[in-house]
Design a protein around this nucleic acid. Structure first.
Lengths: 250, 250
DNA sequence: ATATACATCTGGTATGACCAGTAAAGTGAC
DNA sequence: GTCACTTTACTGGTCATACCAGATGTATAT
């Protein structure tokens, strides 16, 4: 969500290091962190900056902070919120990959719903938008952005803000995955096929078929990740994060 | 579920005030916040404490913070993540209530899925658990906690951590709503009926029926909130026609 | 008119002193 | 000994201040 291009700030550094140390077991779940004065020296930042990082972590369920007691590492995967997962994905740890099928599974459910509602609410505007997708440049980046824009549009038209907020949480993660996924021409071809079919469904106002199309597409993409050999996911830089629309692909 | 009892700290205060001022229009979306030195005096906290609050807000998509430039209020409902919504609900603003149907709708979808998976994975343990629900005390708090525990269990057995993290995000919010919802004996009665039916479905390993039961229960509870007298229960989402980003020159 | 340098905004970092809870160590009375 | 109280030494919470660093507008020199 934030711009990753900037130089890493001291706060970011402390934030990253703390998560890494928690995940890798230096500070296991349930144990106490060192005191802030010690920890700040250890991480090479001022106590001030450390505290700003601690506040971010504490606010999102990584840590249990209270005056007088030592700061404790929480059972984040059980007690934390969704931001935990996003923070984890940013670190790009090994277990990241194991989340992918789960996330795609959940996404397929949500997408089914917001697609149906979007087609019900705004079939014409949606079709109008999809018309542009026929003339897209055939490369990974264009496909990635286009698919992102499509879901962004569907969510806008569906009217349930919660979907957008969840979707945004995974923005960076999606960009990473999709960038890799659409390297394969066959995957781009399947995307185009889906767009075409979705266009037809939208023009015919067939909400159920549209929803099923998007749902099936996401589900089928799961296979790519499940069958992937154990190489690390491409962590190369993503597109600039702007979530703004009006990115009409030329 | 969280500790709200503690005295409000300076950082919490700044955090709360900033959100309030943002949602009430003192600092509208797209505008710049006052400088940290000014703002800290204004909020009655040290710049240091203010920055800790700003970091929490920035990290979750409320603000766009970067060195050299003024801190800007982001279009949080469009660009923020799920934590935004949770922060909003904590303030308990008017629009909070309008989110309820949307959230329940989404919840019903997810619950349908994790219930099915839970019954598929652990029908016996689930049934065993549900057996205890027959002898529950008949009051709001017991029902609230029991229903929470049920979903917690279902999510544990389903094996998709993402569900748990999303669920946790809304823990406090759920507690507030459920506590009110289960004040009505008829609502508690419906809960018990659901538990009984779910127990039967679990013992018979009927995943589809179990999933449908939980789904239907949540969906029906939406009516309570929609028909509630009070103000803004306007469930119909009004999208602000976001063809262009807001650009309000004054 | 253009380009450079500067002044001055903004946030980012570091330091040290002090306040405020918590809990364990110490100390007294019984 | 055991219990209760006090002290002490932690922990995080707050504040003030000086300074660093990036961004930007504005003078100034060419």
């Amino acid at each position: 969500m934030a711009n990753e291009d900037r130089q890493e700030t001291a706060v970011d550094r402390a934030h990253r290091l703390l998560i890494e140390r928690i995940v890798t077991g230096t500070y296991p779940i349930g144990t106490d962190l060192p005191g802030e004065r010690t920890l700040s020296k250890d991480l090479g930042v001022a106590r001030n900056a450390l505290r700003e990082a601690l506040q971010r972590l504490g606010h999102n369920g990584w840590l249990e902070i209270s005056q007088g007691r030592a700061t404790r590492v929480r059972d984040y995967l059980r007690e934390g919120n969704l931001k935990i997962l996003v923070d984890l994905l940013h670190i790009d740890h090994t277990q990241t990959r194991s989340f992918v099928p789960h996330l795609l599974h959940m996404w397929s459910l949500l997408a089914h719903d917001y697609t149906a509602q979007a087609v019900r609410n705004e079939p014409e505007r949606l079709a109008e938008r999809l018309e542009l997708y026929a003339s897209l440049t055939d490369n990974a980046e264009a496909a990635t952005r286009a698919m992102w824009q499509l879901h962004r549009t569907l969510i806008d038209y569906c009217g349930n803000v919660a979907y957008g907020l969840i979707f945004n949480s995974f923005a960076d993660f999606y960009m990473r995955l999709a960038q890799q996924y659409y390297q394969l021409p066959e995957n781009r071809e399947r995307a185009r096929a889906m767009w075409g079919a979705l266009y037809n469904a939208a023009t015919e106002k067939d909400t159920d078929r549209a929803a099923e199309l998007v749902h099936a597409y996401i589900r089928s993409s799961m296979n790519y990740w499940i069958n992937l050999p154990d190489t690390t996911v491409n962590t190369e830089p993503q597109l600039p994060d702007s979530t703004t629309d009006e990115e009409d692909p030329e």
